[in-house]
């Protein structure tokens, strides 16, 4: 029982055992966050660098709280400019960081594969906090944790992921994780938002919202990137909302006890109607709570993973 790896770069290269280990460990960490003293001394002296090349208050805060509850020191580096603009290479940046001798680097980057490049360049553990449209492993882990908590299992669940699959790292990580864990995944959205050969990842593909969510135990609505309007992925937001907005009516195609998830932040009225977003089946806030626990689990498992 161990996470015998230096980094967490993606769900695609995790085994079922590793995913279970992270989820089980995260379950244990839920306790810590509900105590009066929400802090354990486990990672005293450990330095966690949150290196964010892309603004994300949510994910960064979650990692920061997770690290602090484990008594690690955190340093946040937010930079909107790529190293390229500054005239140094990404590897230069990585080596500078390495010289400061942190223990774990959490990287969020708009360019896919950046955490992989960083992990090759430095000795420290690297946690991918989202790389381009590639992976967002901690999000998928917290999603799976939430599903498991609510539905008591992952195997056999029907999970619908709806929206811009092509540009979604959350979709990819969840597809890799859920299919590994034995859930059935169906993806839904306009065909322009479906990446080529997506069906070869072992998912069902639907272009109608109702078909995608039929009999679903879980519906995960992805955020529509409003700036994508310009790329003709869909004609107008109005038309997108008309066919792909989850509302009280079309949700009837799913199971009665369906859970609604969203990686946030939501566009109410675009991909999700307010009454569904704030309704009884929404577990969006539980997702946030579990996010801290999953990140604590990963910081813990990766710290102990070094010899």
């Amino acid at each position: 029982m161990k996470l015998a790896r230096k980094d967490l770069l993606g769900i695609q290269d995790l085994s079922v055992e590793e995913i279970n280990l992270v989820l089980d460990t995260a379950d244990s960490f839920i306790d810590v966050s509900t105590r009066e003293i929400k802090k354990v001394p486990t990672l005293r002296g450990v330095t966690v660098v949150n290196l964010f090349y892309e603004p994300s208050t949510r994910t960064r805060t979650s990692f920061e709280i997770a690290a602090k509850r484990l008594s690690a020191d955190t340093i946040n580096i937010a930079t909107s400019t790529s190293s390229v603009v500054k005239g140094e290479t990404f590897i230069d940046t990585a080596r500078n960081l390495e010289a400061m001798n942190p223990d774990i680097i959490v990287l969020r980057h708009s360019a896919a594969g950046s955490p992989h490049m960083l992990s090759r360049a430095v000795r420290q553990s690297v946690i991918n906090a989202g790389d381009g449209a590639h992976e967002h492993p901690t999000q998928a882990l917290l999603d799976m944790m939430t599903m498991r908590e609510k539905k008591k299992r992952l195997a056999g669940l029907r999970v619908a992921i709806v929206g811009d699959i092509a540009h979604s790292r959350v979709a990819r990580s969840n597809i890799y994780g859920l299919t590994k864990m034995g859930a059935t995944v169906s993806v839904g959205g306009p065909i322009t938002m479906m990446p080529r050969f997506i069906e070869r990842l072992g998912v069902e593909v639907h272009y109608k919202l109702e078909d995608a969510i039929r009999n679903a135990d879980i519906i995960m609505m992805l955020r529509v990137q409003l700036e994508r309007q310009d790329t003709n992925l869909f004609p107008t937001l109005r038309e997108y909302a008309r066919y792909y907005c989850l509302n009280r009516k079309n949700i009837g195609a799913a199971k009665d006890d369906v859970l609604i998830m969203h990686p946030g932040p939501m566009n109410r009225g675009v991909e999700i109607s307010p009454e569904v977003a704030d309704g009884p089946y929404s577990v969006i806030l539980e997702q946030v709570t579990n996010g801290v626990a999953v990140r604590m689990a990963l910081l813990y498992l990766l710290s102990g993973g070094k010899s």
Binding site: D31, V32, L70, G304
Partner: peptide, 21 residues
Amino acid sequence: DITLYRDDIMKSGRARQLGKT
């Protein structure tokens, strides 16, 4: 469960599985 309070977490080579408190 005292795992999170151990003084050898970083030296043990790997994280121990957590027990229930």
